[in-house]
């Protein structure tokens, strides 16, 4: 090829540029806003609502009932853990679906996808950067939730140790390390949602459709997981391990369920993302 002043020499679509393109989007700000709002709402509910712990009937005991409010208000670490407990079922799944499901389909809808590809950003590079930025945004959301929850919990309830409802009290670095383990596991378990959303986003030009389809698949999996009659079959559902991170609260960290959950999620992610790459590489971009 002849030398030309236009031939690129820098990095095509650097991650920094993609971050700048995505982070200033209103939907990003709304999602992060929700994650900041959740701990604030819970604190407000606990502080302003009727006192649950003064009602003797609310203190149930038995083979494993959970006094969530009592747990949440015992200190910053526990508040943080409770927020994660609330968020893992749906909110973080939603966040992941938005960040990964909108990323390519959103560009298609705006009409910017064709200009990026004609820039030219090689398709593999485009997907790679999109994937990295989507996952970074999701991890950022998770991190934000943890930091805000801890901060809000610290102000509202003081710096209590991390105490598991099933027994076990952890201070300082031990607590931080366990929360770290939990955060890493949650991120890994979100990879399943991420993979579905990412496959959807390269398959459609409608971002809402991609996000919705990913959510529906995750919700259906959760519903199937709740059907006792399916028995052992359910252990193959990736959503079966959503709360496996409570294993990190045992005195001896129970890695086995986390390992399973993370592995299934990672395998599903790799397969889904591989299909997404193969599909997108040959796709006629008509948007």
């Amino acid at each position: 090829m002849t030398a030309s002043p236009h031939v690129r020499s820098g990095t095509v679509l650097p991650v920094r540029v993609e971050l700048a393109r995505q982070l200033r989007r209103p939907r990003t700000l709304v999602v992060y806003g929700l994650l900041v709002l959740l701990p604030l709402i819970v604190v407000a509910a606990v502080k302003l609502g009727p006192s649950a712990s003064s009602d003797p009937g609310s203190r149930r005991f038995g083979g494993g009932s959970l006094d969530l409010v009592g747990l949440a208000t015992s200190g910053a670490w526990n508040f943080c853990i409770t927020m994660l407990f609330f968020a893992t079922g749906f909110l973080l799944v939603l966040v992941t679906a938005v960040f990964l499901g909108d990323t390519v389909a959103g560009e298609a809808q705006w009409g910017t996808l064709r200009y990026l590809l004609a820039a030219p950003v090689p398709r593999g590079r485009l997907l790679g950067v999109k994937l990295v930025v989507g996952l970074l945004s999701t991890a950022g959301g998770l991190f934000l939730l943890i930091v805000v929850s801890y901060g809000v919990g610290l102000l509202a309830f003081g710096s209590g140790p991390l105490a598991s409802p099933a027994g076990g009290v952890y201070d300082g670095w031990d607590a931080a390390a366990r929360v770290m383990v939990i955060a890493v596991f949650i991120m890994l378990s979100l990879l399943f949602t991420a993979g579905i959303a990412f496959l959807m986003t390269v398959s459609t030009d409608v971002p809402l459709g991609a996000v919705g389809a990913a959510l529906i698949i995750v919700i259906v999996s959760s519903i199937l997981d709740a059907i006792e009659a399916l028995g052992d079959l359910r252990q193959w559902l990736p959503t079966d391990y959503t709360n496996a991170w409570v294993g990190a609260l045992s005195p001896q960290i129970d890695w086995s369920q986390m390992a399973r959950g993370a592995t299934y999620s990672a395998v599903a992610f790799v397969v889904l993302v591989a299909v997404a790459f193969v599909r997108f590489a040959r796709k006629d971009v008509l948007s």
């Binding site: 203190r59 005991f61 038995g62 083979g63 494993g64 009932s65 959970l66 006094d67 009592g70 747990l71 015992s74 526990n78 140790p161 105490a163 598991s164 409802p165 099933a166 027994g167 076990g168 009290v169």
Partner: peptide, 8 residues
């Protein structure tokens, strides 16, 4: 437990 949950 430390959080007040009673387990029987």
């Amino acid at each position: 437990t430390a959080t007040g949950t009673e387990i029987a």
